[in-house]
């Protein structure tokens, strides 16, 4: 798509970028912190109360997330236990390495997907090391967990040269499409309504994150992107 010129669409996209691109914004990061880690009931309630209106205000009818009823804390906890907790059969923790080829053909034993500490994890760790950013011990095996990717992305957007920040985003958020597909397949025949409800909210959030971080707003008509979600 031609990016030059200042059409009304570009102006709108630029406006959105000003507010939420390239970082996803502090309110969404707060929500990410709640949805991607094991939050307490109070944390969950506070985040939903404080952040959802902001997202609604900024994205409004453009995004499916704003049209999805947030799950209750118990529903989301149930979803987190069943779908996001590592080791539980059928779970899909949001870790980039698990959805990317572990290594090239000379990387040794691990071929294909479904392994921790792949190339993406190695790269994130290297970036963190170079910046003297400490990855928490609990995330030692998953430096490319979506939560850390979002935080690192925000940091880079705030402090690093724009081209490098964009490169990081391009390299480390492309997997979210596959991740959403896997979530869709996982939930396809799920007859647990609470699980399905929470999954819907979670998927819409992840998809919103994906589109914002990958700057799809600038590549497409905002309304088309939002309405296709």
């Amino acid at each position: 798509m031609e990016r030059s010129g200042q059409s009304g669409r570009d102006q709108l996209a630029g406006q959105l970028r000003t507010t939420i691109v390239p970082t996803i914004g502090s309110h969404m990061l707060d929500i990410a912190g709640i949805l991607l880690s094991r939050a307490t009931e109070v944390e969950y309630a506070c985040a939903m109360q404080a952040c959802l209106p902001r997202i609604d205000e900024e994205l409004g009818v453009h995004d499916a997330l704003a049209r999805t009823v947030p799950p209750s804390y118990d529903e989301y906890r149930h979803f987190f236990n069943r779908v996001l907790t590592p080791g539980i059969p059928g779970s899909l923790p949001p870790v980039e390495s698990l959805f990317e080829d572990w290594g090239g053909h000379r990387a040794g034993l691990q071929h294909g997907q479904g392994f921790y500490l792949g190339r993406s994890a190695q790269h994130v760790q290297e970036v963190c090391d170079s910046l003297e950013i400490e990855v928490p011990e609990a995330y030692k095996a998953v430096p490319d967990h979506l939560l850390l990717l979002l935080e690192l992305n925000e940091f880079l957007c705030d402090h690093a040269p724009a081209d490098q920040a964009h490169l990081f985003a391009e390299e480390h958020f492309g997997w979210l499409s596959d991740y959403l597909d896997a979530l869709g397949a996982r939930m396809e025949n799920e007859d647990d309504e609470a699980l399905a409800s929470a999954a819907s909210f979670y998927c819409n959030f992840v998809d919103l994150v994906r589109r914002v971080v990958l700057d799809e707003w600038g590549e497409n008509d905002v309304r088309e992107v939002a309405q296709s979600a």
Binding site: D30, S37, A39, E132, I133, E151
Partner: peptide
């Protein structure tokens, strides 16, 4: 206290980057 952010400790990172 109510946020779940700050998983990464970015302490000196901005200075390193600068």
């Amino acid at each position: 206290q109510m946020t779940r952010r700050g998983f990464l400790r970015t302490g000196a990172a901005s200075a390193v980057l600068a």
